[in-house]
């Protein structure tokens, strides 16, 4: 059985810049993303790691090449950005952020219903209580007043409640301290175990990569290579 979720086919990405030379980030990149795998993308700053994620989620069109979605559609992909503020509406409450996430891809007529309903609150509480971060008791609190750990847990909760088949996570643990980060990683791991989704993460954290990665991809000179000796590669 074909196990490929999507294929990056011959992707090149050149950023046109006025006055200075054009910047080539990706060159003839070919990559198959398989089902039920946790990928880690490593590479130097500016090597194009975030660009790959944005190409996959169709937010950037490659200069050459294409993304072939085989067993998923773009709406099955969830993109978690590095900055928490880009993943949430900070002035809204926890409950309102959850409702926005739960209304993803809903039909227009569903959006005409009231969101302050008891069953919606119960559902949000139920989802958030799995994260053991205490956010389920703070449904009516504005997100900007949560701790960064709670905010990141909420980001993951809003992402996972859309039941994505592919999660793209751009340094999503970098803002977290050493106590909270393993908890968040565990949540992702459990979700992957339950749903057999795939995850593509970007990280500079050696310990996290060694513990979580199933496949490590090193991005160098605009193309990717699979890393077999992770410790050795990261030591460089």
């Amino acid at each position: 059985m074909n196990n490929t979720m999507l294929t990056l086919s011959n992707i090149s990405m050149i950023f046109k810049q006025s006055d200075v030379e054009d910047k080539t980030v990706l060159t003839n990149l070919n990559l198959d993303i398989l089902n039920d795998k946790w990928y880690y993308l490593i590479g130097e700053n500016g090597s194009g790691k975030s660009t790959i994620l944005k190409v996959i989620v169709n937010e950037l069109a490659p200069t050459v090449g294409s993304v072939v979605y085989k067993q998923i559609q773009v709406k099955d992909i969830c993109f978690i950005e590095q900055e928490i503020s880009k993943n949430l509406v900070l002035s809204m409450t926890v409950f309102e952020n959850m409702i926005i996430a739960l209304s993803a891809f809903s039909k227009f007529k569903n959006n005409l219903s009231f969101y302050h309903r008891k069953d919606s609150k119960e559902k949000c509480k139920e989802i958030l209580s799995e994260y053991e971060m205490g956010i389920e008791t703070q449904l009516n609190k504005q997100v900007k007043y949560l701790s960064s750990g709670q905010q990141q847990a909420l980001v993951i909760a809003t992402a996972l409640c859309k039941q994505p088949k592919l999660i793209l996570a751009d340094e999503f643990t970098s803002a977290l301290d050493y106590k909270v980060a393993p908890n968040v990683l565990k949540i992702m791991f459990n979700y992957k175990q339950q749903t057999h989704c795939s995850i593509i993460s970007i990280s500079h954290n050696k310990k996290e990569i060694i513990e979580s990665a199933e496949i490590v991809l090193n991005l160098r000179n605009g193309t990717v290579e699979i890393v077999t000796d992770v410790s050795g590669c990261l030591a460089r």
């Binding site: 993109f79 509406v89 809204m92 209304s103 959006n111 005409l112 009231f114 859309k162």
Partner: peptide
């Protein structure tokens, strides 16, 4: 403003990417 549509309207001003990524 108390419907989901109203909520999306409010979110649209502050974080338009969330709206787009949710398929709206």
């Amino acid at each position: 403003l108390y419907t989901r549509y109203g909520l999306l309207l409010r979110a649209c001003g502050e974080n338009v990417k969330i709206i787009q990524r949710s398929g709206h």
